[in-house]
Design a binder for these strands. Structure first.
Lengths: 149, 149
DNA sequence: CTTGACCTTACCATGATGGGAAGCCTTATC
DNA sequence: GATAAGGCTTCCCATCATGGTAAGGTCAAG
């Protein structure tokens, strides 16, 4: 099975398969005489494992640990559980941070009449109550066009 | 005011102030004879605006637009409100994705007895019910040590 | 005048992914 | 057998916002 077929079979892009190999997350795979990577189903299963773990938001470093545990028939499930719960807690922290942002924005937007008048509590909050700069026409070939659409 | 003082006054690191200038988010600032950047309070206010917007998770590109609106005395608050609500919606999408991950992990962990026995529904789920690879001792100086702590 | 703190620019790294170029290989068609 | 299409190889670059570091200039206090 070449890399394209392995990619389709595992749901991991060929690009990422090579990357996983280059970084040592997976072992270098067999090659054909011509130098093509040659995959067996075992490797495809490993790739599926990785894809599923990525879908659950595990960072690659943690996935390396999970792969080790997966391959370790004498593992203790407590270790896996600990890693999973630790990651779940990290996710929940991110959720809390994002929710706080969204709540602030929603609250500010509620107080913004949102019509053609210029005054806007959202900008006031961002500015912390101060007046803006005069329009600074910078050179420096702007990556951000400061466009008002 | 030199860049260090401006950084302390705005809460934006000197590094990031230079970066914002290089990318055109803010205009090039005055320089002393020796080439030191020289900031006024107006610039510090702009930096504070940016910092606050970053805290709310706005990407730099969007902040460029918000800065334009902030400096535009003829802006329509509806435009600001639209941007804010759009961003809030994007945040909520991320929240939903992260929450789904966390929920799945929590559910899997609940079904894992978490003791010194090896069987583990968490790994089973990741593996989709298949058997693991035999321990592949890859060269490729692994960045991820596959360590079992 | 020296020292230490600060400034300048320039480069590298992050994490996981995609894009693309240049060149070799395989397969199908003629 | 020749050719074309498409897949493979490696290598480099970009993302996004941020930090680190190094080499060298500047400033203020002692």
């Amino acid at each position: 099975m070449n890399i394209g077929e392995a990619a389709r079979a595992s749901g991991v892009s060929a690009k990422m398969i090579r990357y996983y190999e280059a970084t040592g997350l997976i072992a270098p795979v067999a090659r054909t005489e011509a130098g093509y990577r040659d995959y067996s189903m075992a490797e495809v299963h490993t790739l599926r494992f990785i894809r599923r773990a990525r879908e659950l938001g595990f960072p690659m470093e943690t996935i390396a640990g999970l792969l080790g545990l997966w391959q370790d028939r004498s593992r203790q499930s407590a270790e896996v559980k600990r890693i999973a719960l630790e990651h779940a807690a990290a996710l929940q922290e991110k959720v809390a941070a994002l929710e706080a942002m969204a709540a602030t924005l929603t609250r500010l937007a509620e107080h913004c009449h949102g019509d053609d008048r210029p005054d806007c509590p959202i900008l006031d909050d961002l500015a912390d109550g101060r007046a803006p700069l005069s329009p600074s026409s910078g050179e420096a070939r702007p990556r951000y066009a400061a466009a008002r659409r």
